[in-house]
């Protein structure tokens, strides 16, 4: 195979990551645009277990690379992806812009002199090659990139940002009906360079805000932090997960795991209730794909109202107190 799209599935400690299905959906869109066939590569000892999940209609081939390493290890994945690219010479490789990929994908791109862009939020096949968009100048602008004279282009797509949501587009998983399965043998002797000592689960009470259906998100408008307790209580009452914008995290008022936006998490919940969030670009970049965004801010000129579906100009604590009264 030369040309076509190679999607790199991501298998985490908890199984196939949902972002894999988003990558496949994006790959299929590129294929529709003329990029060629779509193959999915799975790297990992338990890769065979996930063949069916990635065999979405339109995926022609699932390539298994099963190093003996049980878990992700950046150098092993680097060697495996490098070998896959050299063997298949795809036109486009899609991977997630995730904590794991960031440990090896740029290294592969640099060594093999690939076309490369990370944190990509839009991709299309135009005039015989990929065209990608990503944030620039702290997300204030969007840069459109092309990749002249590059045989293979490796793109890291921002989870939740490219195409529609995974569950809407690629379905909850494939049927396995049409995809051909092939294996790639890798000579990975001696490439492991780091050793996992342990995995510490997220501390109790710590949350994965990216998995929440309903986020109650707070920003600078809450002031110095004396009243965050009221909003935590409201979030519990509403059944929402509390998240927030950068300034609160940097001020130590909210844990880092709850940060939405650039240098935090990208989220796409069903409901995003933004209280006192001004809507600076780095924040909006992390939440604009939420299905319903409701914003309360005392400043009618706040940029959050440009992306919100529903807005109210009001004191957030007054609204919070009313919400609490009506719900209890």
């Amino acid at each position: 195979m030369s040309g076509g799209v190679l999607v790199l599935g991501e298998i985490g400690d908890d199984g196939l990551r949902p972002s894999t299905l988003e990558l496949i959906a994006a790959g299929l869109e590129l294929a529709d645009g003329g990029a060629g066939r779509v193959a999915v590569a799975l790297i990992g000892a338990d890769a065979p277990a996930h063949v069916q999940a990635v065999s979405v209609a339109g995926v022609e081939e699932v390539i298994l690379a099963a190093p003996e390493r049980e878990r992700f290890e950046a150098h092993v994945w680097e060697a495996a992806l490098g070998a896959l690219i050299e063997a298949r010479r795809p036109a486009v490789v899609l991977a997630g812009h995730t904590a794991d990929s960031l440990g090896f994908a740029p290294a592969v791109a640099a060594r093999l002199r690939l076309g490369f862009a990370s944190d990509v939020t839009w991709v299309a096949w135009e005039q015989g090659g990929p065209l990608a968009r990503r944030g620039a100048y702290g997300e204030r602008l969007i840069a459109e990139l092309d990749f002249p004279a590059k045989e293979t282009v490796l793109l890291l797509l921002r989870p939740g940002a490219c195409g529609a949501r995974a569950d809407a587009d690629a379905g909850a998983g494939g049927t396995g009906a049409s995809a051909r399965i092939s294996r790639v043998e890798l000579d990975l002797d001696g490439v492991a360079r780091t050793e996992r000592i342990e995995l510490r689960e997220a501390p109790a009470g710590e949350v994965d805000i990216a998995k929440a259906d309903f986020l109650l998100s707070i920003g600078r408008g809450v002031g110095g932090g004396e009243r965050i307790g009221e909003l935590e209580r409201l979030a519990r009452l509403m059944g929402a997960t509390l998240s927030g914008s950068g300034p609160l995290v940097e001020a130590g008022l909210l844990s880092r795991a709850r940060k939405v936006g650039q240098s935090g998490r990208t989220v796409a919940p069903r409901v995003y209730l933004a209280l006192g969030i001004s809507g600076a670009a780095p924040h909006v970049a992390g939440m604009s794909k939420a299905r319903t965004i409701i914003a309360v801010n005392s400043d009618p000129g706040a940029r959050i109202f440009d992306v919100a579906h529903y807005g109210a100009v009001a004191d957030l604590f007054e609204v919070a107190a009313e919400l609490e009264r009506q719900l209890s």
């Binding site: 791109a109 640099a110 002199r113 690939l114 076309g115 490369f116 862009a117 065209l131 990608a132 968009r133 620039a136 997300e139 204030r140 602008l141 969007i142 840069a143 459109e144 990139l145 092309d146 990749f147 002249p148 590059k150 490796l154 670009a281 604009s288 965004i293 914003a295 109202f305 440009d306 992306v307 919100a308 579906h309 529903y310 807005g311 109210a312 100009v313 009001a314 004191d315 007054e318 609204v319 107190a321 009313e322």
Partner: peptide, 25 residues
């Protein structure tokens, strides 16, 4: 070795604008 070339910069869309909820808290 540069991975990409910037074709152009685009402004971020301002969105449709929110439907505003009026009235007291």
């Amino acid at each position: 070795v540069a991975g990409a070339r910037t074709v152009r910069l685009l402004e971020r869309g301002r969105g449709e604008g929110a439907s505003m909820i009026e009235g007291p808290a």
